[in-house]
């Protein structure tokens, strides 16, 4: 049974994702209407990551939450686990759940129901690029993404 994310919206989300992340994602929706997107992304010349995007039942009115679920442990340039230093403005990390770091992506004032999960994923891919550059340079992620 589909929840508040209407079937037509879900079709759009799946079509856009399938055109660009073919075979690299799953999108499921539970009986309460919460949608969970798991998607594999790659940083150019760098690592591979799996993101979990959780869109609550009031999506797309509300912003989805994005977690990095693989690799399970990510560290900063100083060797500290990102989970242990979250939330962190300098690293653009929000308060995590118990296991996974949660990425900042859209500002609330920039969020609009027309923004798709695809664009959220691209934004998080940019975060991952900034993260890998942070590992090499030691610069905070805000240096790459702004404050």
């Amino acid at each position: 049974m589909l929840g508040p994310m209407e079937a037509s919206r879900r079709k759009i989300e799946e079509t856009v994702l399938a055109n660009t992340f073919t075979g690299a994602f799953t999108l499921v929706q539970d009986e309460r209407g919460t949608a969970r997107l798991e998607i594999d992304v790659k940083v150019p010349g760098g690592g591979s990551y799996r993101l979990l995007v959780v869109a609550e039942s009031d999506y797309p009115s509300s912003m989805p939450e994005v977690y990095v679920i693989q690799p399970l442990v990510l560290r900063d340039a100083h060797g500290r686990e990102l989970l242990s230093i979250s939330p962190s403005h300098q690293m653009h990390l929000l308060k995590p759940n118990s296991r996974f770091i949660r990425l900042c992506h859209y500002k609330p004032e920039a969020w609009h129901p027309n923004v798709t999960l695809y664009k959220v994923v691209l934004k998080c891919l940019i975060w991952l690029v900034a993260y890998e550059n942070h590992l090499q340079s030691g610069r905070p992620i805000t240096d790459y993404l702004g404050t």
């Binding site: 653009h92 900042c104 992506h105 859209y106 934004k123 993404l145 702004g146």
Partner: peptide, 12 residues
């Protein structure tokens, strides 16, 4: 997909 706008409209 051109990502410039997505990258430049800020991160929370």
């Amino acid at each position: 997909t051109y990502v410039d706008q997505i990258a430049s409209d800020g991160f929370a």
